[in-house]
């Protein structure tokens, strides 16, 4: 590092320290409580559908899939109606982490980029946020599955 670079670095560090005390902290406790309540409520709604499908005679471990599909439908609908971003403003991760948040990320981007065309706009961009989620789910799922299979196989 040259002398001028070192000096620049020192200046930047000093500024970082000075700026630090002016930074507002996110209201962590309030945010976490709201995330808990909103995420919990969405999960409870999901439970209602699981219970409903189970009551219709579906085995409990099979009722999760149709319930998830209904939740995706609801997340997509509320996004289209312009409601989901308001829920997220209050709920933060409580709205982003449930499967409805995943649906929201697809509809929100698809709607936004429809103006750039139905193919290269809407359809290409609908995975801007959901794409990485699918990519990492698949890659980690395959890797974890193979490791588990290999270890179990050796046993």
């Amino acid at each position: 590092m040259s002398q001028s670079q070192a000096q620049k670095k020192q200046e930047q560090d000093a500024y970082k320290k000075l700026a630090q005390k002016h930074q507002p902290k996110p209201p962590l406790l309030k945010n976490v409580i709201m995330a808990f309540l909103v995420g919990g409520a969405i999960s409870a709604v999901g439970q209602a559908f699981i219970n409903y499908f189970a009551a219709r005679g579906m085995p409990p471990d099979k009722a999760g899939a149709p319930a998830a599909i209904v939740m995706v439908f609801l997340g997509a609908l509320l996004t289209g109606l312009g409601v989901y971003d308001s829920i997220a403003k209050v709920g933060g991760a409580g709205a982003a982490v449930p499967i409805t948040g995943y649906a929201n990320s697809i509809v929100a981007t698809a709607m936004e980029f429809k103006r750039e065309g139905w193919i290269m706009g809407m359809s290409a961009r609908m995975f801007q946020i959901a794409g990485p989620v699918i990519v990492y789910a698949v890659v980690s799922g395959v890797v974890v599955g193979l490791i588990r299979w290999f270890l179990a196989g050796v046993q």
């Binding site: 507002p24 209201p27 989901y84 971003d85 829920i87 997220a88 403003k89 982003a96 936004e112």
Partner: peptide, 10 residues
């Protein structure tokens, strides 16, 4: 996108 559920930082 504006309809994406994101909490704005303070």
């Amino acid at each position: 996108p504006v309809e994406l559920g994101v909490q704005r930082k303070p």
